[in-house]
Design a binder for these strands. Sequence first.
DNA 1: TGACCTTATGTGTAAAATGTACATATATGG
DNA 2: CCATATATGTACATTTTACACATAAGGTCA
Lengths: 138, 138
Amino acid sequence: MVSPDPIGSRKLPRNFLTPWILLVLKQWSLHGYLIMQQLNSMGFAEVDHPTLYRELRRLEKEGHVVSEWQTDGSGPAKRVYSITEAGEQMLLGWSEVVSGYQRMIAGFFDLYAQAFGMAPPATGPDAPTEPEFNDNVT
Amino acid sequence: MVSPDPIGSRKLPRNFLTPWILLVLKQWSLHGYLIMQQLNSMGFAEVDHPTLYRELRRLEKEGHVVSEWQTDGSGPAKRVYSITEAGEQMLLGWSEVVSGYQRMIAGFFDLYAQAFGMAPPATGPDAPTEPEFNDNVT
DNA sequence: TGACCTTATGTGTAAAATGTACATATATGG
DNA sequence: CCATATATGTACATTTTACACATAAGGTCA
C-alpha cells in the first residue's frame, strides 16, 4: 500500500536546477562538470548529468547562456558556459519565483507547527469549526 | 530567442503539492474543492484541479488518505478526505524533504547576495580564482 | 602497451508529472 | 429556463526528468 519510494526519492522538484545554474554562472564561468560539482556542494544530492547538460544546451538555445570550447589544458575538451544579459534578466525573474517558494515553505512550517501541538486557529478555508470526519481514522 | 514563458510561468516545482495536501489533511478533514481553496490561500496561485484530484486519488490508492462521500448538505456530493496513520508518517518524511528545500533556497540567496555586490570568496568548486570568460559577454 | 580510472560530454528512450480541454451533476438566482 | 457557482472527474498532449548506454582524452601503474 505504501509507496515504494522513500518519500522524496532523490527526485528534484520541477525546474529547480535552472535558477541555480544561472546563479552559479552569474558568479563563475564554468563548464558543465564543474557546475555539477558546485551544485553538489550546494545541496543537490546527485545531479543527473544528462539532465544538467541538456538544460545547459536549452539555456544556450534560448540565449540565456553562451559557451566556448576550451581545448587547451589537460583532459577532454570542456565547454565553458557564461551567462548573457538575457540570462541575468532571467535570473532576476527566477529569484522572485524562488522567493515565492521560500514564502510557501515558511507557510508550510507555520501550519506544521500548528498541526503538531498547537490548537488550530479558526482560520481554515471555511472556518471548519466542526470537523466532520476527524474520528474515523483513529 | 528568449523563452516565451514569464520565467516561472505558473508551473509549480515537481511534487510540491503532496506535502501541502498531507499537511492540510493533518489539520482538517476536507473535500477537494476546499483543499484547493486552502492551498490558494497558502500561496499556490492557481492549483490545477485535475492535478489535485488525481493526486488525492493516488494518495488514497497508496493508503495515505481515505475518503468518504458526503451526500448530505447542499450542492453536489463531496468526497471528504482524511489522513491515515501511513499518511502522517509520510508527512513526517516530506517535512524533512521540504526542510532540505528550505536549506537549498537559503544557500541560493547566500550566493545571490555574493553574486550581486559582494566579492566572491575563494570557495568555488575548484577555487576558480582565474575566471576564464567573464568578459566576453559585456 | 594494455588495462583501468577520472574527467568530460553527449544520445536515446522510457517514465513521471503536469496542463489543457472537455464532460457531468447539483443547487441557486434571475 | 438559463446562467453561474460548486464539486468531481476523464482523455489526451506536452513537458520534464531519470536511467541506460556511448564516446573520447589523458593519466597511472604493472
